[in-house]
């Protein structure tokens, strides 16, 4: 996505075909074939765990443990997954994960878009100081707050509920920061003025100017939040003890505990089904995510 920007420079070549330059270009083209060697090697290494997941999830345990190892997918996925369903609260966990991910992401995206839009496009007393405070909070290490936060959730009666997964992170500094950047860069003030002249109030300006203007950033931020919510492990592990409330990562741990030493193919089948939705989501939104990933990186 960034490579094509360098292409423009080649267009000037025919006008001044100086010899050193041509030699350099030829060398460059040869180099382009050569760099495929390390890249392909790395690609195989990066793809292999995914491939192995598919192979194991579709084979029976005895098929995998042959020597030499069988490296092609099998046909036993149905049996393995049936075992996943009967041996763990997998369907519960899947719907729990969908619920937590959808509600959590909606809240995070809404508050981020609203807050970012207001910081970027409205002027009010104390705005810059408040925003500075928000930026400072992003640098605070979160690790020190685990014990007190856990105790606060306990005092609120939030253990064994989804509140700790939904409420504390609903309005993230990172999300507001990101949306403010996007709104500053991509929503012209003229649009807001026009909406106001038409008599649109605060809320309607946000809905009809803010949300459409931020749509691509909202798409990218949503994918990131879905990713983080779907895979969140620490807090579900700490606050959820009722297995019916388990999200997918916890259910996989449970499955691993129960079948890990008996039938690893079953664990793999569950893992595959838990992983697939995000892989598909990512492939669909690949371009949006990759072009916004450097902004998303701020999360760290």
């Amino acid at each position: 996505m960034s490579a094509p920007t360098l292409l423009a420079e080649q267009a000037t070549t025919p006008e001044h075909p100086t010899p050193p330059r041509r030699r350099a270009l030829t060398r460059h083209r040869m180099g382009n074939y050569l760099v495929h060697v390390p890249l392909l090697l790395a690609a195989v290494l990066f793809a292999f765990p995914f491939y192995w997941l598919v192979v194991m999830a579709t084979s029976s345990t005895s098929e995998i443990f042959t020597s030499p190892p069988r490296l092609v997918p099998g046909t036993k996925f149905g049996e393995n997954f049936a075992e996943v369903l009967s041996g763990s609260p997998f369907l519960f966990a899947f719907s729990n994960s969908v619920f937590v991910t959808v509600v959590g992401s909606l809240l995070q995206v809404f508050f981020a878009a609203l807050g970012g839009f207001v910081f970027a496009k409205y002027r009010f007393p104390g705005r810059d100081k408040l925003f500075g405070l928000l930026v400072v909070t992003m640098a605070l290490p979160t690790g020190v707050a685990i014990v007190p936060n856990f105790q606060i959730y306990a005092n609120l009666g939030w253990l064994n509920t989804y509140w700790p997964l939904l409420v504390p992170g609903a309005a993230s500094a990172f999300g507001i920061f990101w949306m403010r950047q996007a709104a500053t860069a991509s929503i012209p003030d003229e649009l807001l003025e026009a909406a106001r002249v038409d008599g649109a109030g605060f809320w309607r300006v946000f809905r009809h100017v803010g949300l459409p203007g931020l749509s691509s950033t909202i798409a990218a931020f949503t994918v990131f939040q879905v990713m983080w919510n779907w895979n969140e492990y620490l807090w579900p592990l700490l606050v959820l003890s009722d297995t019916d409330l388990y999200t997918l990562p916890l259910a996989l741990q449970l499955l691993k505990g129960a079948y890990g030493s008996v039938d690893y193919s079953v664990v793999m089948a569950g893992t595959l089904v838990a992983t697939l939705p995000l892989v598909v989501l990512f492939l669909i939104f690949r371009r949006t995510v990759m072009s916004h990933a450097s902004a998303g990186a701020i999360k760290g």
Binding site: L39, F46, P249, K256, T275, V279, L283, M290
Partner: peptide, 15 residues
């Protein structure tokens, strides 16, 4: 290549 190298990022640590 970019997609392939980035893809592990979307998987959960448990998986």
């Amino acid at each position: 290549y970019q997609t392939l190298f980035f893809l592990p990022q979307v998987t959960s640590v448990v998986a």
